[in-house]
């Protein structure tokens, strides 16, 4: 068996004339958190959707546990143990918490044609899953149209965690969350990693990405600028990668702030860096790694 659970080889994805992804190579390891970085429209969501079985790659190869494979549906990906939190959450407002939680993967009881949806157990699991995210559900049978944005996001995450046996994909999971819930999500990500799952995380928040991630892959306008191990990059460099090397002037003040914060913990005089220097550093690393 391969060392990687998922491998992409020269994967491209086109939508008509739009090139959403071009020649992407990526490897995802069990027990690692793999962070996808990139600007808005860089192709992050498109990339994870090809991993989730929503989009078929237009070109290139998808390998699962070392074997080439074509995912034809999200259902197939779920059967393989790949669960996804989509950016738009994929929830149905008119349906209840429990029905959303188990949508497509219903918990059944009984035999043959008399199999039925085991609502009671399902309710319990859904409530427990949300409690782990820090959300107290009032009534698991209530339609989620009445839930807050963050509560819905936690529901989508709890669902993916419950069904992701091997790979957990999170597309901006903390976008709508409060401080406590964001911390919970990161905790859950760390827990999943400790359980040996592979986690693919998309976020625009470096404070969320840096502490939990083991690897960073940088996307820019549909192309990969390379994968970096955490050991090889600093938080500042990550932040810079996320900005796509642009608007550095604006960033400088922010960087100065990090510097102060970092030098508070470790007397890091070596963090004195100027943005241009960091950019060259990361480019070199891209070339080496």
């Amino acid at each position: 068996m391969s060392e990687f659970i998922i491998e992409l080889k020269n994967v491209s994805r086109y939508f008509g004339s739009v090139i959403a992804l071009q020649d992407i190579n990526m490897q995802v390891k069990l027990g690692e958190v793999h962070c996808l970085l990139g600007d808005n429209g860089a192709g992050k969501s498109t990339l994870i959707k090809t991993l989730a079985g929503v989009h078929k790659p237009s070109e290139g190869e998808f390998l699962y546990e070392g074997k080439p494979m074509t995912l034809t549906s999200p259902r197939q990906a779920l059967d393989l143990g790949i669960a996804t939190v989509y950016q738009d959450l994929a929830l149905v407002s008119l349906m209840s918490v429990t029905r959303n939680f188990f949508m497509g993967r219903e918990l059944t009881k009984g035999w043959g044609p008399f199999k039925y949806f085991d609502t009671q157990t399902a309710n319990k699991i859904a409530v427990a899953g949300l409690a782990e995210m820090g959300i107290e559900v009032r009534d698991p049978e209530q339609a989620i149209g009445t839930m807050s944005g963050g509560e819905r996001q936690c529901l989508a995450i709890a669902r993916a965690i419950h069904f992701g046996a091997k790979v957990l994909i999170l597309d901006e999971p903390t976008a709508a969350l409060g401080v406590k819930q964001s911390a919970n999500v990161l905790k859950v990500v760390a827990k999943a990693k400790a359980r040996g799952l592979a986690v693919i995380l998309i976020t625009h928040n470096v404070h969320h990405a840096y502490p939990v991630a083991d690897r960073f892959t940088l996307l820019n306008r549909g192309q990969s600028l390379g994968t970096f191990l955490k050991a090889d990059v600093t938080r500042e460099e990550v932040l810079e990668m996320m900005a796509g090397g642009q608007e550095l002037a604006d960033l400088e003040s922010e960087l100065a702030e990090f510097q102060r914060a970092d030098s508070a913990d470790n007397d890091g005089g070596n963090h004195a860096l100027d943005a241009g220097q960091a950019a060259t550093n990361s480019m070199q690393k891209a070339a080496n790694g």
Partner: peptide
């Protein structure tokens, strides 16, 4: 309720 969401989670 939402065919796209449903499809994405394997319905």
């Amino acid at each position: 309720g939402d065919a796209k969401a449903a499809k994405n989670v394997g319905v």
